[in-house]
Simulated scan of single mutants.
Amino acid sequence: MMPFERLLLENKAWAAEKVGEDPLFFKRLENIQQPDFLWIGCSDSRVPANEITGTQPGEIFVHRNVANLVINTDVNLLSVLDYAVNHLKVKHVIVCGHYGCGGVKAATTNHDYKYLLNMWLRNIKDVYRLHREELDAIHEPDERTNRLVELNVVEQLKNLAKTSIIQRAWKQENRPDLHGWVYGLKNGIINPLLDIKANTSLDPLYEYDDL
């Protein structure tokens, strides 16, 4: 059996189990999608949003990329954010990183990862630059990487708040709240770092006054 064929067999077994537990499970999912949460997470295969939060299909709208970045020129992410906020009307947006993140670790090196990865990781290097004094004072490499993971989540959460998509929803509907989390691969526990409530004041430089 080829590896991908095992996935198809597991899918059939999972679908049969769901129908056995609840005959109308897929009928409900087919006709409605009303998640309360948008999850912006890392593409790492060890951090599946539904499984680590104990949620079911239909409860979390998910976007994932390397090192859970929120970049103001990333049309993919912004399209997901726009759809989640303005059409699905999510009440919460979560940026979730994870300790031991390979993307964050790679950004702390001077290795050439070729054009595309270099361009992507540069955004994490910028986070390092903003917090260089604190990070350079951490001499243990894994501890430094994990602190950068936390600081990266905080900066990406702030990047969310700077978007007109979020600010317009704040002004018109007083939602969504923003949450920055880090997942622990060693223990499976999520560490909440920062919450930004709807309509939180930002640096005036980033606030839109005509939404």
Results as ranks from 00 to 15, higher is better:
L117I: 12
E17R: 09
L88A: 06
L116R: 10
R132G: 04
G41P: 04
L77T: 05
N118M: 13
A67M: 06
I71R: 02
E140Q: 08
D112W: 05
L135N: 09
V85S: 01
Y99E: 01
Y83C: 08
F26H: 09
T53Q: 11
C42L: 02
R28I: 11
E30L: 11
E51S: 01
T55L: 12
G58F: 00
N110P: 00
E30I: 05
I71P: 00
F26V: 08
T108S: 06
L24V: 13
H131A: 12
Y128W: 15
V70P: 08
N50E: 15
E133D: 14
D22N: 13
E59G: 03
R28P: 14
N76V: 14
N123Q: 10
I124R: 03
H63D: 01
E21Y: 02
K91T: 13
K114M: 15
N86G: 02
E150C: 04
K18D: 09
L81F: 06
V149R: 07
R46V: 08
E59H: 04
P48E: 15
Y128T: 15
N50G: 08
V62I: 15
T53H: 11
V75Y: 12
I71A: 06
R64A: 09
N86V: 01
T108D: 02
G54M: 01
T145L: 00
L38K: 09
E133S: 12
K89M: 02
H98W: 05
C42S: 07
I40M: 00
H131G: 12
R132T: 15
D112M: 13
N76A: 09
P35I: 05
L151Y: 07
Y113N: 04
A49G: 11
Q33M: 05
H111Q: 13
V104F: 08
S45P: 07
I138Q: 04
L130N: 11
K27P: 00
V95C: 03
E134Y: 13
K27Q: 10
V66Q: 13
L151W: 02
L121H: 09
T73Y: 09
R46A: 07
T55C: 10
R28T: 15
V75A: 13
E140C: 05
